[in-house]
């Protein structure tokens, strides 16, 4: 059964394919007959800044584009530091998280002016704060599927496999197929999506 409102955040770094991922998840929700609202910021943020999409599914009443702080039910993170940043601000004791553990370094870290927090500490903190947290090696899986950039679709696959949204895989398949008219691109994205399903199942069985 679907609750009245599901708040999902997809977060990462500009250029990682946040918007495409949120379009697919939203598309699957619409096919299920849910109301959908998305809050998106882009512009300057596409140049490697922090990015975040708020996706909200509701059964009856319309909702606004922003998830209130502390009210995210699900977080899909494309990068560990961004996942933690969002979890600290938007998470609560029941928030479920699935994330890509591959770090992407901010410029101040690249130049040696600040330190990227200890990765193990980030993982532990995410684990402690979230009700459930699952690590999916999305970049590696995307490479195997044909292109490391398709990590966003791997993460969508992982979300689909989690069944946290209670959307059938078929809904996701339809949403992906509709977004890509070029068969080559569609196949790559479907491969990455399927890799994410397997990746989640393996991670969850660990």
């Amino acid at each position: 059964m679907t609750p009245d409102l599901i708040n999902l955040i997809v977060c990462g770094v500009g250029g990682q394919g946040n918007i495409l991922a949120s379009q697919i998840v939203a598309g699957a929700g619409i096919k299920k007959g849910l109301r959908v609202a998305i809050g998106e910021t882009y512009g300057a943020s596409q140049r490697g800044g922090s990015v975040m999409s708020h996706i909200r599914f509701s059964t009856a009443f319309p909702v606004g584009p922003l998830i209130p702080k502390g009210e995210a039910d699900l977080i899909v993170g494309f990068e560990p530091l961004e996942t933690l940043r969002v979890l600290l601000e938007y998470g609560n004791d029941t928030t479920k998280v699935v994330f890509n553990p591959r770090p992407n370094y901010p410029i101040s870290v690249l130049s040696g002016d600040s330190k990227y927090p200890d990765l193990e500490l980030i993982f532990t903190q995410i684990k402690n704060l979230a009700a459930v947290s699952v690590v999916v090696e999305a970049t590696e899986l995307a490479k195997q599927a044909g292109n490391h950039l398709a990590q966003n679709l791997v993460m969508v696959g992982a979300l689909a496999a989690s069944n946290w949204l209670d959307f059938s895989l078929e809904l996701f398949h339809q949403a992906i197929s509709e977004l890509f008219s070029d068969p080559e691109k569609r196949d790559l994205n479907l491969r990455a999506f399927n890799a994410g399903i397997k990746g989640f199942q393996q991670a969850a069985n660990k």
């Binding site: 596409q46 901010p106 101040s108 870290v109 200890d118």
Partner: peptide, 12 residues
């Protein structure tokens, strides 16, 4: 709060 400083990530 997180034990370590979380660096900002501005666009570049």
């Amino acid at each position: 709060n997180f034990d370590q400083a979380i660096p900002q990530r501005p666009p570049i």
